[in-house]
């Protein structure tokens, strides 16, 4: 394994070939904000918050650090005026979808983002893909997936699988930054799960009313 040396925020950092910039930074306790990153999962590059400025031979470019492999002699800047501005806009765009997500509110404070900047379109999902990927890669159940595309893209539980697997698992629930996943599950449960018993039991008071007791 060859070691690669490069610079993050003025510090010399060593990393192994194949690592991402984000991974190397985390090893050195350098903080880069993320929403779609998870230790156990493959890099996804969905939220774009981990964007950093990269300088190679005097040229700078913007890359997403969670999917960018480390290179020799690069200079990485995790905070700069430009980066902060981009992150602020990303947060504002995400807040149009999920205005009250705790993670986003913390980030908004840090970067001075205005949650009301863009017209609200509360879908409550920010498409981080954590639930979908966790269900695929770690638990291997594939009970939840993305459907549709573009602005209509959303997560969707497969009722047949979810009914069998989800009640005993629910490992994806704490991963969701907006709690939309829980809502989607409850909705699927209410609308699409096959009833566990053939006849719904009515409350006693209702029965009494009907029979006139």
């Amino acid at each position: 394994m060859s070691e690669i040396q490069f610079e993050i925020d003025g510090r010399q950092v060593k990393a192994v070939k194949g690592m991402t910039i984000l991974g190397a930074a985390r090893n050195e306790d350098i903080f880069i904000p993320t929403l779609c990153h998870h230790e156990e999962l493959e890099p996804f590059g969905g939220c774009r918050l981990c964007i950093v400025e990269l300088e190679v031979k005097g040229w700078t470019k913007l890359v997403v650090s969670c999917v960018y492999p480390v290179e020799k002699n690069i200079i990485v800047r995790t905070r700069s005026k430009k980066i902060d501005r981009i992150r602020k806009t990303i947060i504002e765009l995400l807040m149009a979808h999920a205005p009250f997500a705790p993670d986003l509110m913390v980030l908004a404070k840090e970067y001075g983002a205005d949650g009301d900047r863009y017209e609200k379109d509360p879908s409550f999902c920010i498409h981080c893909g954590l639930c979908v990927r966790y269900c695929d890669e770690v638990t291997g159940k594939n009970a939840v997936g993305f459907v549709d595309r573009g602005i209509n893209k959303e997560i969707s539980f497969i009722p047949e699988i979810a009914q069998k697997e989800c009640d005993d698992c629910k490992k994806c629930f704490p991963l969701c930054p907006t709690s939309y996943l829980q809502a989607a599950f409850v909705l699927t449960k209410a609308l699409a799960f096959a009833p566990s018993q053939p006849v719904l039991s009515e409350p006693e008071s209702f029965k009494k009313k009907v029979t006139g007791e």
Partner: peptide, 10 residues
Amino acid sequence: PLSRIQHIVT
């Protein structure tokens, strides 16, 4: 997985 097929089909 059915979820992947659904993703593709939609």
